[in-house]
Design a protein around this nucleic acid. Structure first.
Lengths: 185, 185
DNA sequence: CCTTAAACAGACCGAATGGTCTGATTCAGG
DNA sequence: CCTGAATCAGACCATTCGGTCTGTTTAAGG
């Protein structure tokens, strides 16, 4: 059972990192804040992540894992046909929104000017993209999206996320998504 | 003539701030870096912007001004009809991309967790939105966009910006925009 | 039980940060 | 020319940062 102890505090730390990213933003996510939020000592934090960059890389993987989890959890529920098509769109929206995605967004933008973070985020995001692609696109099952539709809709979802950062307006969000569905039927 | 001296260094500082935001990101945009980039002393920097928040608020206005400048510079060149419609889309794209917009994006996301920055950015962005709205939408001139189309396209542009942060792929960008034009004609 | 390595606690450090303070310099108005 | 406000220069400071280090606890294997 003791095998789990280290893994559990590691999880606590990563979860605390996500919380800090969401509540304080990337610039104010410090080791001090993370260890306070996680309720661990400096020694524990440093034992699992020897540097700040390493912690952030860990957060990248953690966020991707969380997103992938919700994806594979809800994928089996999808129908076929037009109805399933809408379900896919809203499933994507659920994966690409909420606190976890917000933390990912902070990391995403920070990765632009942080080489280490970028080197970690690019392949992770690529793989997540592949998973999404495998789950929601294809020509066999009716209701699936095309590859381009997927990429395009991901762009829209990112735009919605960054937009709603300053203006919290669920109606516009809903409207844009419904219009996206309507225009490519 | 001396009236201009202060204004000129102030401009240098703001321009340096934008440069730092683009090259190092929000988290690594420090007063030290800004004064080095601007080539001014700490005294000069502090004289014009008494705090970091004030500097960032100044940067917000500066970025908005720069964007508005390119907008009103190119607006008179617009045609009417279908052709003008495409021109409007690409004009919007030129306003919502490039280094200046990237700096704005850093400020935008940082404003989420920085109350001072948020309080400054929200009204500025609203006014810029009004200017864009007045210039490119309406029912009188053929080729103009509807209000909703504008909001929707701005979402797409923000999504493209955040997407191309990690994957620099002009073809996808171009493809998405052209598809946007094609689907709502 | 005993040993050993993993896991953790917390004091400590140099560097960097935002911000203050005292002077020097510039320059417009009288 | 003189005066005073605006502008700038740069030393200085308290705090916080990421990171190191030493010592203690925990728990698994022999």
């Amino acid at each position: 059972m003791g095998q789990q102890r280290g893994a559990r505090t590691r999880e606590r730390i990563l979860e605390a990192t996500v919380t800090c990213l969401v509540e304080h933003g990337f610039a104010s996510t410090t080791m001090q804040r993370v260890q306070n939020e996680a309720g661990v000592s400096r020694g524990a934090l440093v034992h699992h992540f020897t540097s700040m960059d390493e912690l952030l890389v860990g957060a990248v993987h953690h966020v991707a894992k969380r997103q992938l989890d919700t994806l594979i959890r809800d994928t089996p529920l999808l129908d076929c046909g037009t109805q399933g098509r809408e379900q896919r769109v809203w499933l994507l929206h659920s994966v690409m929104s909420g606190p976890v995605f917000l933390a990912g967004l902070e990391l995403w933008l920070a990765a632009r000017t942080n080489p280490t973070l970028r080197a970690a985020l690019v392949p992770v995001e690529r793989e997540l993209g592949h998973e999404i692609n495998a789950a929601l696109t294809g020509e066999d099952a009716t209701g699936n999206l095309t590859r381009f539709e997927l990429d395009e809709f991901l762009v829209t979802l990112r735009g919605l996320a960054i937009t709603s950062v300053l203006r919290e307006d669920p109606r516009v969000e809903r409207h844009v998504i419904e219009d996206w569905i309507a225009t490519r039927r």
